[in-house]
Computed example of a mutant assay.
Amino acid sequence: MTSEKTMRAVRVHTLTGPAGLRVDAIPEPVAGAGEVLIDVRAAGVNFPDLLLANGKYQFKPDPPFVPGGEAAGVVRAVGAGVTHLAPGDRVATTMIHGGFAETVAVPAQTVVDIGETPFEVAAATLLTYATTMHALVDRAALKAGETLLVLGAAGGVGTAAVEIGKLLGARVIAAASTDEKVAFCRERGADAVINYTREDLKERIKALTEGNGADVIYDPVGGALAEPALRGIAWQGRYLVIGFAAGDIPKIPLNLVLLKGCQIVGVFWGSFVMRDPQRNHEHGRQLFAWIADGKLRPHVDGVIPFDRAPEALERLARRDVKGKIVLVP
């Protein structure tokens, strides 16, 4: 539902990537039954936003539409049936799209209290860190003492995997594409690093694990890295398929799975949120508790106003982001 009031929002008008974005005045939403109306203070920018803007995401809304998968702000109003939230609460939320707007109306079950976490940090947390919590805890059952290899480790979900892997007691090997990025991964807590543009990925994994391989591989990249990474997996390891930032969906020789006795495990966080919102909400509460305790430090690489949203997506396309970029109205 919408009101007669208008708000500013970033919208995709043509499926041409960053060039297709512009800021419009559109009707403001209202909170329906079971929903919460949030005045957005910051919105996280994620790789799916770039895919949406190019018409390459698995969900393809028709233009014009508002991208943005996560936002943080202040509750303005709650709809009928919502009892655990109230106007004035500081919160964060996730959605398929719609976050790059001054106000959003979302299902109450997607909203998490952020306490005193700064809005820019909260907007850089839920999508990437909750994806990673689901991946490492629910899908991989990562155990203390195991070795976790993270591909694309300087990006949004990669940084989250490095930090959460360490919190769960794993030995973390961070793999990234430049010396600057692997240095950033060390700053985030990685025990060892691999620059896969100039080092042989499979051989470095073996060297860093005394030939045993990585127990869990976290792969948001896909493409040409997938097969050499899988060849470096440990006996009965778990290979987590997070996404395909490289653009190519790899074709894996299944004999490797047989020989390694390993599992290839899909991580579709968006579907998990819809199927088990309570579990996802538990993950969100844990994440913000860790942030409050100083155990997690989501990295905000830039805070950019709505008017410069194309710049944020251009930086994502160039893989020129460490951690997350955040948009502010």
Rank of each mutant, 00 (worst) to 15 (best):
A71Q: 01
H97T: 05
T14A: 14
D248T: 14
L313S: 01
F306L: 00
A224S: 03
T14V: 08
A226I: 13
R11E: 05
G34D: 02
G323W: 04
N195P: 11
L316R: 01
V326W: 14
P228V: 02
G261H: 14
E35M: 05
L201I: 15
V36H: 00
D191P: 06
R8T: 00
A108S: 14
L21V: 08
E116G: 07
S271V: 11
L296W: 11
L142Y: 15
L296D: 15
F100D: 00
A207C: 07
V221M: 00
R11N: 01
I242V: 14
V303P: 06
E28W: 03
G32I: 04
H134G: 02
A43S: 04
D320W: 10
R318W: 15
Q286F: 07
A234K: 09
G99S: 15
A234N: 12
V257C: 08
T178F: 12
V121A: 05
E311H: 05
A207V: 11
H97W: 15
P48N: 15
I325P: 01
I114K: 06
V111S: 08
I249F: 07
G323L: 00
A224L: 03
I233Q: 00
E70D: 09
G222V: 08
F272I: 01
A9D: 07
R279K: 11
A317K: 14
G213A: 01
G55M: 08
E227W: 05
A309P: 06
I164T: 00
